[in-house]
Amino acid sequence: MGWKSVVDQSFSSGHQVRQQGDLLTGEGRCGKQTVAVIGTTNHAEVGVELALAMAAAVLDVIRSHPARPIVFLVDTSGQRLRHRDEMLGLNGYMAHLAKCVEMARRRGHAIISLVYEQALSGGFLANGMMADVCAALPEAEIRVMGLPAMARVTRISEERLTELSMSSPVFAPGAKNYLKMGGLDELWEGDLSACLTDAMEHIDASDHRRKNGFERGGRMLADVVVKRVLASA
């Protein structure tokens, strides 16, 4: 779904979201609440400029609109794969964005993210995965790597990986797998405006993903292992 349809449907009481290059910024109305909108489009490759622009937008919301909820609209094909961006320290720019999001959360901003097209590996870590509520449209593509490439790197046949992916959510692409693993909180279907309103009403600022992964049967060990570390003599 294109970002314009996503904002039209999510902010039925009105919105002002602009696109500049691959960056989306603006605000939308959700009931009586105004929320900040920050995102990317065109399956953006997140390089240093784009990561910095998103961080600037987050800092701007913190400065100008204390406690205003922030909605990230995620569409990224991952981090930009360029020598130049690596040389400039792209990991540092991504981390900066993640830190800005964390700072916003700790200053009382609810953080919601919606993967409406693509979320691939590194591009997803710095914003979408930092959210209190991380949602996706059911048809959204979420992955680290596709199975053919994974087969090449791991030297496990694609047939075997495909077969295993039928019963395990642990490595294969797909929003449903991330939901089962606790990496996504929910899939938004139908009335997006209602989904957003509902999400804003059950903000949980703690990291609840490993608990969800356990309860949904997709990631059985993470929560257990953390608890064992906490209980170790």
């Binding site: 870590l125 680290v144 790597m145 994974m150 294969a172 991330y178 990496g183 990291d207």
Partner: peptide
């Protein structure tokens, strides 16, 4: 990569736990 989704979510959990 053998547990790519679990690994990606784990890295994200590490980031949040560091902060």
């Amino acid at each position: 990569l053998q547990e790519a989704n679990a690994g990606l979510i784990a890295v994200s959990e590490v980031m949040r736990a560091i902060l």
